[in-house]
Design a protein around this nucleic acid. Structure first.
Lengths: 334, 334
DNA sequence: TTGAAAGCGCTAACAA
DNA sequence: TTGTTAGCGCTTTCAA
């Protein structure tokens, strides 16, 4: 391994001059600088960034803990985050939620002196949250938030649930099913609240079996959808707690030979790009004006750069918009 | 920052004993070990992994340079790779192709002593390839390969192009358009060769304008599709060089109010999960039995672990299979 | 079983 | 403008 020492020897200067050429090139005489630069080339020298990090106690690296990329929402956030990090000269270490215990990830982040954490994967009452706060590492949560406090950017999920439910009611539906993901997660928790609130306001009971809280794996979603469709009193509309859920739900419905929205209306939440594909045309509620990943990253870098200064919590709530497409239609009269 | 020195002080032992508790716990007397362990807890000590890396010259981190996640193919590979790395105790630094110059990425990788490189993004004659080989860092390319040599896992893309073209011909089509991505990339280069070869064998000329080589951004694809559909002699079938291209192409066709396959047949390559969605049902050719990302990662870790030993090139070619779904149909007779 | 000491490759303070 | 030196926090001989 060629080190700055080797370069120094070849160039006939001290090792610290080599270091200076790298860090404060103006502080070294042009002639010497050139000699050093040439020596570096000759040896194809590459500074050991680990050693540098040890001294400077900085790594220019952030951590991203993300949900599965099979969910298009996380494709969008992951892409914006990595791109934004790259453009600021930061690298991104990517961890998947549930691939290893959150606590281990946080330890790894602390140990590697990563400079910030972006994470989608917190539960409402996750004990890791207080650990993260305690560790002092700058962080932004996105999509989900903890039960209280914290820095986050989220959708107004209660409102989102209300809006989509109202849309379905406006179409005349009454037997409405709702498929939700894990309720210990703020998105699903709040969206469901919105749904229930509007149903109640409309004087409608959510029939037993019509509210499904499930593991959001495609197979589970399909199983649940089939179960709903085989109910004696089949729903005339299904609202899904996310677009990813809605896609699998749609897949199952179509596989039965049913038509959407003629036989059943379907709506999702989150605005992922595939939702507007002409073969899908999924009615959703979400925010397309602002990219959640970019907002999260932006705020994180601000926090990193203003370093240490007192920070009040950053809590950003985006307003949902309704995107009425082709999967929801008027209830047919018989 | 609490260091092993601090732990040592509290525990009343030397700093090297603290280190031993971490690395060779059996070599330290149980009683001492416990004292040290308690001291660690008390201070919530977290070893500085950067310092460790500096000494051991290892980081347990690999680099992934991937194409855009908006292409479902890279979602699959990225997911398998990160999961496989995690399960082996490695972390993954993710870089996007084209976000920064490849040379800078490679320098970053060398400087950070990352232990291996997985990359999808090489061009046929990319000069970076020889740099990577020269650097001695273990690597596996996937999806694409360089003009010659190298370690890679790819699809038999010529055969893939042949198979899909034959399928279209078998349906009676003669006016067939082909939309390809950058031809300096092995996948697109080879798939197009397969297409042209079969067309020639069938005695069919590829009419001017029917072979489109474009930038694979959704807008470009849509523009190109519209152009094709407005040709005086409109194609009766379109073959796309990837499923990602086919999705955008389908979007454009449907937006014109045309039906697939009644008005035009459409086929893609690569087997991404969305292709089998019932709202899409895209006919493709690809390999679903083996996960390219897993194979790439598997081989990389073998190379990392057998370290230094002579390695003949690893060149793995997967066999394509035809998945006939609902976007291709018989040419209508008039 | 433990401690002392060297050194990984770099940055940065200080002196010249 | 340059060199000398200390030290970042760890692992790893070597001696005791």
């Amino acid at each position: 391994m060629v080190s700055s020492k080797d370069v120094a020897k070849i160039a006939g200067v001290s090792q610290s001059t080599v270091s200076r050429v790298l860090n404060k090139p103006d502080s070294v005489k042009p002639k010497t600088r050139n000699i050093v630069l040439h020596a570096m080339q000759e040896l194809s020298y590459q500074p050991n960034l680990i050693a540098r990090s040890l001294v400077t106690n900085s790594t220019n690296t952030i951590a991203l803990i993300t949900g599965t990329l099979y969910n298009g929402f996380y494709v969008e956030t992951t892409t914006s985050i990595i791109n934004m990090a790259t453009s600021r000269g930061y690298k991104t270490m990517v961890y998947f939620e549930e691939a290893m215990p959150l606590r281990d990830v946080v330890d790894s982040i602390r140990g590697h002196k990563l400079e910030g954490l972006l994470m989608s994967s917190i539960k409402l009452d996750d004990p890791i949250f207080s650990e993260i706060e305690k560790s002092g590492i700058p962080y932004m949560l996105f999509n989900r938030r903890p039960a209280q406090g914290g820095n986050y950017v989220v959708l107004d999920n209660i409102l989102a649930g209300e809006m989509i439910t109202r849309h379905i009611l406006d179409l005349g539906h009454k037997r409405i099913a709702y498929i939700s993901g894990d309720i210990h997660v703020s998105t699903h928790h709040e969206r469901k609240i919105g749904f229930e609130r509007v149903m109640k306001e409309a004087g409608l009971d959510v029939q037993p079996g019509m509210l499904q809280i499930i593991d959001t794996k495609p197979q589970e979603i399909e199983k649940t959808t089939l179960k709903l469709m085989h109910l004696a009193e089949r729903p005339t509309a299904i609202i899904c707690g996310s677009s990813a859920i809605a896609f699998s739900c749609m897949d199952a419905i179509l596989s039965m030979g049913l038509r959407i929205p003629e036989d059943i209306s379907l709506a999702g939440m989150d605005n992922v790009s595939m939702a507007s594909h002409h073969a899908i045309q999924l009615t959703t509620v979400g925010n397309s004006k602002f990219k959640m990943g970019e907002i999260a990253a932006d705020n994180l870098f601000e926090m990193i750069e203003q370093d240490g200064t007192f920070n009040r919590p950053r809590q950003i709530v985006l307003q949902p918009e309704l995107n009425i497409r082709k999967t929801t239609g008027h209830l047919k009269k018989f």
